[in-house]
Computed example of a mutant assay.
Amino acid sequence: MFWALFVLGHDCGHGSFSNYGWLNSLVGHFLHSLILVPYHGWRISHKRHHNNHGHVDNDESWHPLTEKTYKALDYVTWKMRFTVPFPLFAYPVYLLFRSPGKKGSHFHPDSDLFLPHEKGDVTVSTICWMAMLALLLVCSHIAGPMSVFKIYGVPYAIFIMWLDAVTYLHHHGHHEKLPWYRGKEWNYLRGALTTVDRDYGWINKIHHNIETHVIHHLFPQIPHYNLVEATKAAKPVLGKYYREPEKSGPLPFHLLGILARSLRVDHFVSDAGDVVYYQTDPQLNGDARAKSE
């Protein structure tokens, strides 16, 4: 249910829920505040992600770390980023502090994520987020913190894990290395084609078509309920540039291995070059990094 709320709020953020901006904003605030997401703060950074997908320096969320940034990570940050299950809880941290190498917060109107005319929208969304948090505290006082933890906390944790796993796998872990671009080598089409569709088995049927990520990046204005049809229409046009997803059984257990392997080997990209690929830390074996701290 949390995922359903997120997908509908996600459509609102892209303007594909309604033709009326005020209705997208109203519904988006209601839905995203329910799952502790600051609507405008997330909407603006997510728009930046779509406008710069596949760009090493300008992409937002799950973008690659440069070698210099990677080597500057402290051990705790490295562990939380690259060791399962910690990255599966990254979303709240990302909302608060963004990714390593980037500054700002989705909650603060003065963050460099936002333009001056967006500060008012960000403030409203942060107030809505705080109101939801206050409501949860009131419910904890009335019904007890354990009841709120069972009814809200556990589903929220599962939602966060699923969100991080899904979004990561749509940009990492393909059997052929995915390029990342800089400078003149980057363009919108090239960036969109670095994304990957995934097959989630029977979960596809109840998952609001999130497996169709390539077409979503090519045309983010398409609502979620039309993505499967749009993907079928686009595949003959894309031809060899479309990466067919690996077929899943009833449950997508194969994606767990792909996720773990990608986090183990996709560490950083070169500091220089206009077309780069993920590299593996050559010094990494066992807890060598911990010993070197």
Rank of each mutant, 00 (worst) to 15 (best):
P282I: 02
N19T: 10
H49K: 07
V7R: 08
F2I: 03
K150N: 07
L73P: 01
H46I: 02
W22R: 09
R182N: 06
N58M: 15
Y39P: 02
Y168S: 04
Y225F: 13
D11V: 01
R190L: 05
H170C: 09
V196S: 07
L88N: 11
Y152S: 02
D164L: 02
Y277D: 01
P92D: 09
L73W: 05
P282G: 05
Y188A: 10
L23Y: 07
K102V: 14
K247A: 10
V27F: 04
V37D: 00
N226E: 14
S262G: 13
L227Q: 09
R190A: 14
K247V: 07
F30H: 05
S292R: 11
P38E: 03
F268W: 08
W180K: 06
F149S: 13
V166E: 11
R182Y: 04
A72E: 14
K79S: 11
G257K: 13
E118A: 03
A288S: 14
F268T: 04
C128H: 09
C128W: 09
V122H: 01
Y91R: 08
I35F: 03
T83S: 14
M80T: 06
V196R: 04
M161C: 15
H224S: 11
G101K: 02
I44L: 11
R289W: 14
I35K: 00
D164Q: 05
M1W: 13
A143K: 06
W202F: 15
A192E: 02
N204D: 14
A290M: 09
H40M: 06
N52Q: 07
E246C: 08
L136K: 04
K119N: 07
A4Q: 14
H254Y: 14
D271Q: 05
E67A: 13
G28W: 00
